[in-house]
Amino acid sequence: AKPPKTVTVKVEVTNADGETQTRTVTLTNLPKDLKPGDTVTLPETGQTARIVEITP
């Protein structure tokens, strides 16, 4: 079996106070056609994050 493909992405997350924070997260099994501006759900927090940058 192939190991899951991990991708490092820079995302913007809005916290409970309405502040936008930029975080770098490593995600696995992202859709192939994901692009900056799309939103993903962070598995560890369940927060919705907007992708700023994808590092191949």
Rank of each mutant, 00 (worst) to 15 (best):
G37N: 04
V9C: 07
N29K: 05
K32F: 05
P56W: 04
Q47P: 01
K10G: 02
I54F: 08
K32P: 15
K32W: 03
N29L: 03
P56E: 13
T6Y: 13
P31D: 15
T22D: 03
K2N: 14
K35G: 07
P4V: 12
P36C: 06
T6K: 09
T39Q: 11
L34Y: 07
T8W: 04
T55G: 12
R23E: 06
E53T: 08
T20I: 13
V7T: 10
V13W: 15
T55H: 12
I54T: 03
D17G: 07
I51T: 01
I54S: 02
L42Q: 01
T14R: 10
A1Q: 13
P4S: 13
T39I: 13
I54G: 02
V25T: 03
G37S: 01
N29I: 04
K35T: 05
L34T: 08
E53K: 05
G37V: 00
T22M: 12
T55Q: 12
P3H: 14
K10T: 13
T41A: 06
D38E: 05
T8V: 12
P4K: 07
N15R: 06
V13P: 00
K5N: 15
D17H: 13
K35H: 09
Q21W: 05
N15W: 06
L42G: 01
K32C: 12
E53W: 02
E12A: 10
T28Q: 11
P56H: 14
V13Q: 03
I51A: 01
L30K: 02
N15H: 08
L34Q: 02
K35Y: 07
P4Y: 00
Q21V: 15
G18R: 02
K35P: 00
K2P: 13
T48Q: 14
T55D: 11
L34N: 01
A16R: 09
K5I: 15
Q47N: 04
I51S: 00
T41S: 08
K5S: 13
I51R: 00
V7L: 09
L27M: 10
T6S: 11
T14C: 07
Q21N: 08
L30D: 14
V11C: 04
A1W: 04
Q21M: 12
P43S: 08
L30M: 13
R23Y: 11
T24H: 06
P43M: 07
A49G: 09
T45A: 04
N29E: 15
A49V: 11
V7D: 04
R23Q: 10
A49S: 02
T6W: 14
V13R: 01
V40S: 00
V11A: 03
A16S: 12
V11N: 00
T55W: 13
K2S: 15
T8N: 07
V13H: 03
T45L: 07
K32G: 15
V52Q: 03
P31N: 11
G18L: 02
L42A: 01
P56R: 09
V13A: 03
V25L: 05
A16Y: 07
A16D: 10
T48M: 12
R50M: 10
K2V: 15
E44Y: 02
K2A: 15
T45H: 04
Q21P: 01
T8F: 06
P31V: 13
D38L: 03
V11G: 00
V11P: 00
D38M: 09
T6H: 14
K10L: 14
T20D: 03
L34M: 10
T55V: 14
L27I: 15
D38V: 04
